[in-house]
Design a protein around this nucleic acid. Structure first.
Length: 203
DNA sequence: ATCAAGATTACCT
DNA sequence: GGTAATCTTGATA
């Protein structure tokens, strides 16, 4: 896998309309340099959470200690803890003070697969089925990339965690549908994924 | 101080 | 398809 680590998405990519960013993040490469090793995968499923109109966004009732990162400038990583055992990662979008973010729901593993496997299953040799299960969910992504509360607020324009530009998924290969695992604002069609990609978290 | 819900996952039938 | 696991957070008193 030959990745150009200098090809980071610029600040302007993130500081835009949240639904546009959620769409355009599909196909981009999410990277973490951990202990000198490269962990990388292709983002293939996202969900938008937008303050104000969206009852299920953490930011919908204003700023709190937990969601403070959502109100920062676009291009930061928002990580939160849920269900007593899992973390979920989001990309903050739009201008400072807005409270918008895009949840990373599924990633197709590209590089550092043995490390992902170690972090997820405690072993480095995995089957094809296990490979499809590596990063196919927001909690799984955090386990595999070792993202926790400590990474909340990390700037994606820094040199530890960042997203590389790559070709955008075309409209005819993109599916837009309702979001998963929420109880409020269920009707909003703010989930996006790449059609026919075997790593999608759920149909 | 108390309490219910939660942007999930793994494992069971 | 169903549900247990596990605990922080935000809302209410």
């Amino acid at each position: 896998m030959n990745l150009n680590l200098n090809n980071k998405l610029p600040r302007e990519f993130y500081v835009r309309d949240t639904l546009t960013v959620a769409r355009e993040l599909l196909g981009k490469i999410f990277v973490r340099i951990l202990d000198g090793k490269i962990l990388a995968g292709r983002i293939i499923e996202t969900e938008a959470y937008i303050a104000g109109e969206d009852e299920s966004a953490h930011s919908s009732r204003g700023k709190t200690k937990r969601n403070a990162t959502m109100f920062e400038e676009g291009g930061l990583l928002y990580v939160y803890f849920t269900y007593g055992m899992y973390y979920c990662s989001n990309v903050v979008t739009n201008e400072k003070g807005k409270g918008d973010a895009v949840l990373l729901r599924s990633i197709e593993p590209l590089e550092g697969i043995e490390i992902f496997a170690q972090n997820r299953f405690g072993k480095t040799e995995i089957t094809g089925k296990e490979k499809r299960n590596l990063l196919s969910g927001p909690g799984k992504i955090c386990m595999a990339y070792k993202l926790t509360k400590a990474e909340d607020g990390t700037d994606l324009l820094g040199d530890e965690i960042f997203i590389l530009d790559a070709s955008t998924v075309p409209e005819n290969k993109m599916v837009q549908t309702t979001r998963i695992g929420i109880s409020k604002s269920k009707e909003l069609p703010w989930r996006f994924y790449e059609k026919d990609n075997p790593y999608v978290s759920r149909k």
